[in-house]
């Protein structure tokens, strides 16, 4: 005859143990998830994605045409370009972050944030490829190539524009300096013609005695020879 009452005791014990473990694990995981979700996102809000999806969901008022496909394609391309920046950022950060994590220099939290960003970027790419294929078959294969070139081109253009923006400043500086040199030189000449010592060699050393006027000498003395040399170079170098 089985003693049901005595047998129930170990089962009840097991039940309590398993139940409490389960509850603990459930609560723990929930808190972890909530914590991970509350972590600051790695990237800023994806503006291009928001624009694209907003355009897709734009409900034009009655009588006006729908958003044309061209605009949507442009918006998708912009979105892909921004994704390229993010892919590059994730790739660059990954190696450094792994090393830092192994050394224990950064916390676990940063790593979690990063992993989430990585996953999001992956999803984002898949999404863009799907959208591109919906516009035109096989565009998904080349959209990121185009976007990559767009991102690189933007860098090239920004850099050259920045540098070219220096031209007015440099020109002004040089014009001022040139004017200064000329007036100084004229002054020196006047002084010297007064002293009746205006040989070709003397102005050089006379001007050179003042520190700020060194350049006078260089420009005036170096001018003709330099331009001759420059001329020689030009002949040699002009052909591409």
């Amino acid at each position: 005859m089985v003693d049901w009452v005595n047998l129930a005791i170990p089962f009840a014990y097991l039940g309590v143990v398993v139940g409490s473990l389960y509850t603990f694990s459930y609560l723990y995981r929930k808190r972890q998830a909530a914590h991970a979700a509350s972590l600051a996102p790695w990237f800023d809000p994806h503006l291009q994605r928001n624009i694209y999806l907003s355009l897709l969901h734009l409900d034009p008022p009655e009588g006006t045409p729908k958003v044309p496909d061209g605009v949507l394609r442009a918006a998708l391309l912009r979105r892909a370009t921004e994704d390229i920046h993010r892919i590059v950022a994730v790739r660059n950060a990954k190696q450094a972050l792994t090393t830092l994590l192994q050394r224990g220099s950064v916390g676990d939290e940063l790593w979690q944030r990063f992993q989430r960003a990585e996953k999001e970027v992956e999803e984002e790419i898949r999404d863009v490829v799907n959208e591109a294929n919906a516009f035109s078959p096989n565009w998904g294969q080349s959209i990121f190539q185009s976007a990559n070139e767009m991102a690189n081109n933007a860098i090239v253009r920004k850099r050259t524009e920045e540098l070219q923006a220096q031209v007015p400043k440099e020109k002004e500086w040089w014009a001022k300096k040139l004017a200064g040199i000329q007036s100084d030189f004229m002054k020196e000449l006047d002084e010297e013609s007064g002293a009746k010592k205006a040989t070709a060699a003397v102005p050089v050393s006379a001007v050179g005695s003042k520190g700020s006027d060194d350049d006078t000498v260089l420009v005036e003395a170096g001018g003709p020879t330099a331009s001759q040399q420059g001329g020689g170079k030009k002949k040699k170098k002009g052909k591409h």
Binding site: F43, D44, P45, H46, R49, S54, L58, T64, V71, A117
Partner: peptide, 17 residues
Amino acid sequence: MDSSDTFTLLPLHLDPA
């Protein structure tokens, strides 16, 4: 970045012309 199934709706306007 927003999660994959949500986004911020921006009040955009399309000039019909």
